[in-house]
Simulated assay, not measured.
Amino acid sequence: MQFVAFLGAYRDPGNLNPWAAALLGALLTSRVTFVLCFLIIFLCALTSSVPHRLALTGITAAVVGVIANLALYFCGPPKAEPPARGDPTQDQGVYFA
């Protein structure tokens, strides 16, 4: 989303320098998108009520799940043993010793 705002502001900068407008558009997009989310999370972390702790636990579990999913997607599934050396038919992946 930040990249799209950067390109949009660069393409139509108005009275500003295109690079300055692009940087301002990207920063504004990041601020509007993420500041409210961080504010809610940090305010919930400061309170000690059970519903807020449960909500933060759910958010943490979701973030860990997304990171693990992306790691498996980009690294491939774990393999038991590496392929023979120099075999171009085998793909690269994560191997456990």
Rank of each mutant, 00 (worst) to 15 (best):
M1S: 10
F3P: 01
F3K: 11
V4E: 13
V4P: 01
A5G: 01
A5Y: 10
A5Q: 05
L7Q: 10
G8S: 13
A9T: 07
A9I: 02
A9P: 00
Y10I: 01
R11P: 00
R11Q: 12
R11H: 12
R11N: 11
D12H: 09
G14T: 06
G14K: 05
G14P: 00
N15A: 12
N15M: 05
N15F: 03
N15W: 03
N15G: 04
N15I: 06
L16N: 12
N17E: 14
N17T: 05
N17G: 02
N17P: 00
N17K: 11
P18Q: 07
P18E: 06
P18W: 09
W19T: 10
A20F: 11
A21E: 01
A21N: 02
A21V: 03
A22D: 00
L23F: 06
L23S: 08
L23I: 09
G25I: 00
G25W: 00
A26V: 04
L28S: 12
T29F: 13
T29A: 14
T29W: 13
S30K: 13
R31G: 04
R31S: 06
V32C: 04
T33Q: 14
T33W: 10
F34I: 03
V35G: 00
V35Q: 09
L36A: 15
L36Q: 14
L36T: 11
L39V: 05
I41V: 15
I41S: 04
I41Y: 11
F42V: 07
F42Y: 13
F42Q: 04
L43K: 10
L43C: 05
C44Y: 07
L46N: 08
L46T: 06
T47M: 12
S48R: 15
S48N: 14
S48M: 07
S49M: 05
S49V: 12
V50A: 04
P51E: 02
H52M: 11
L54F: 05
L54K: 11
L54V: 10
A55Q: 04
L56Y: 05
G58W: 03
I59E: 02
I59M: 12
A61L: 15
A61E: 04
A62T: 09
V63R: 08
V64N: 07
V64A: 15
G65L: 15
G65R: 05
V66T: 09
I67E: 05
I67T: 11
A68W: 14
L70A: 13
L70I: 10
A71M: 13
L72Q: 14
L72Y: 13
Y73W: 13
F74S: 10
G76W: 07
G76I: 03
P77Q: 13
P78K: 10
P78W: 08
A80W: 09
A80Q: 14
E81N: 10
P82Q: 05
A84N: 07
R85I: 11
D87R: 09
P88S: 10
P88E: 05
T89F: 12
Q90D: 04
D91F: 09
D91H: 12
G93V: 01
V94Y: 15
Y95V: 05
F96R: 08
F96K: 04
A97Q: 11
